[in-house]
Design a protein around this nucleic acid. Structure first.
Lengths: 228, 228
DNA sequence: ACCTGAACACCGTTCAAGT
DNA sequence: ACCTGAACACCGTTCAAGT
C-alpha cells in the first residue's frame, strides 16, 4: 500500500508546495471545469495534493479564497482601445464588461460577496463617467445612466446561456423560452404569436437592443456624432 | 427529563402534523427571518417540531421545497388594474414585477432553480406582449424589448438594497457606493466629481430612469398617448 | 513557517423500523 | 400512511502536534 505511481498520494507535501497563487489557480480550474458548487476545501486540497487544513495557512477561510478568485478573474478584463467618439467608447466599455461577466460567469455568482470594488470596476466606472462628462451629461443623468447600465449588464449576464461544461441543463434563457412555448396557446395568445413569428433572436442581439435603448438618452442630450 | 413545558420536544408528532402547506409556510418564515442560507432541513424540522427525515415523506428533496416556496411567493404578485393606456399598463406591469422581486428577494436567489415558468410570469409576459401588440410594435422589437426589460428588472432587483433583517452588512448598492467614495480622487476624478455633486439618488429613481429609457423606443415606434 | 491528524459541529439524504 | 433513529457521505473550521 506504499506509494507506487505518481497518482498515489505522497506521504507529506514539501515545504513550498502551497501559496496563494497556486491555490487560486487550482480553485479557478475546478470552478471552470465543474462549477462553483463543486469547489470544496477538501476537493481543492486533493487537487493540490495536500491535506485540506493546509489551506488555512494561506487563507483565513473559504470566502477569502473566493475573493482572491474574483480578483484574479476581474484582472482578465480587457480595457477597450480608445474609440472614435465618446459615444462609441461608452458602448465599447459596456460590451467589454458584459463580455468579462459572460466569459467568467462565476463573477456573477460571486457578485454578492462582501468584497471591495475591484480595480477593474473602478477603472470602468471612471472611464464611463469621463465619457459622459465630455458628452455634456449632467451629474444626475450620468449617475442614473451608469446605475441603469450596471443593472442591465448584471441582469443580462445572469440570464446569458453560459454553456457550462459541467451541467447538462439548459440556461435560464433557453429554459424560459422552451417553457413559454409549452403554455396553452388559447390562454396565452400574445406569447405564442411572438414565439411563432420569431425564429431567431440571439442573446447578443437582445443585449445590443437594450444597450442602444438605454444610450438613446445620451445621444439625445449630448451632441450625437451621427452614425458611425 | 420528561416533557414539562410546551417548548420541550414532544415524544412523537401526531399523524397529520405535516403537509406541503405547513412545510412551505415554515420555510418561508425561516427565509424571511434569517435568510435562505439559514434554511436547512434540520432547522426546518425543528421549527415544525418533527424529526428532519419526516420532511421526505412530503417532498422528494430540499430543492422541491424551494420550488414550492418560489411558487408560493410568485403567487403574491398583484396584477395591476388596467391602466389608462397600453403605455401606462406596460409601466405598471414592470413596476409590479420589480416590486414582487424586491419584496421577496429570495425569488432572485431562486431564479436559477430548474423550475417551470410560474403562472405569474406567464401572465406578466402575456400582458406585456398584448400591450406591445396593440401599440403596433412588431414581433422582433416586442421580443427584444421584453427580453431587455426582464434583464433590467432582474439586475435591478439583484442590486436593490434589501435591508435584510438577518444581516448587518449593507447591500450591494450601498457597499458599491461607499467603496467608490474611498478610491483615490487623483486617479478617479470623474467618479468623485459625480459622487460629490450627487447627494441623493434613490434606487427607485434609478429604476424609473432606466425603465423610461428602455420604453422610449416604444413611445417612438407606436403612437404615444402624450403625457398622463 | 508550513503541513498534518484528529476532532467538532454542521449539511442533505437513505432506509429499515416503529406506530 | 406517516414519523422516527441510526447511519452514510459529505461540508467548513479549529487546534495541538509534528517537521
Amino acid at each position: 500500500v506504499s506509494s507506487s505511481a505518481s497518482d498515489s498520494p505522497r506521504r507529506r507535501a514539501p515545504r513550498g508546495t502551497l501559496n496563494q497563487q497556486v491555490i487560486v489557480a487550482a480553485a479557478i480550474k475546478i470552478i471552470e471545469t465543474h462549477g462553483l458548487d463543486a469547489l470544496s476545501t477538501r476537493g481543492l486540497a486533493r487537487a493540490l495534493d495536500v491535506r485540506q487544513t493546509a489551506l488555512y495557512t494561506h487563507f483565513p477561510d473559504k470566502e477569502a479564497i473566493l475573493r482572491a478568485v474574483a480578483m484574479e478573474l476581474f484582472a482578465r478584463f480587457k480595457m477597450p482601445d480608445s474609440a472614435a467618439s465618446d459615444g462609441e467608447m461608452l458602448r465599447a466599455l459596456i460590451r467589454a464588461y458584459f463580455r468579462l461577466l459572460i466569459d467568467n460567469p462565476v463573477l456573477v455568482q460571486l457578485a454578492s460577496l462582501p468584497e471591495s470594488v475591484s480595480e477593474t470596476e473602478a477603472r470602468v466606472f471612471e472611464a464611463l463617467y469621463g465619457c459622459l462628462h465630455r458628452l455634456g451629461i449632467d451629474h444626475r443623468n450620468a449617475a442614473a445612466l451608469v446605475a441603469s447600465l450596471s443593472r442591465y449588464v448584471l441582469g443580462s449576464a445572469t440570464m446569458y446561456p453560459a454553456r457550462h461544461k459541467w451541467e447538462e441543463e439548459p440556461s435560464l434563457w433557453e429554459r424560459h423560452r422552451d417553457q413559454l412555448a409549452t403554455l396553452p396557446p388559447e390562454r396565452y395568445p400574445a406569447i405564442h404569436d411572438v414565439l411563432q413569428n420569431l425564429p431567431t433572436l440571439t442573446q447578443e442581439e437582445v443585449f445590443e437592443y437594450g444597450l442602444e435603448a438605454l444610450l438613446n438618452a445620451v445621444d439625445a442630450a449630448g451632441g450625437t456624432q451621427a452614425g458611425g
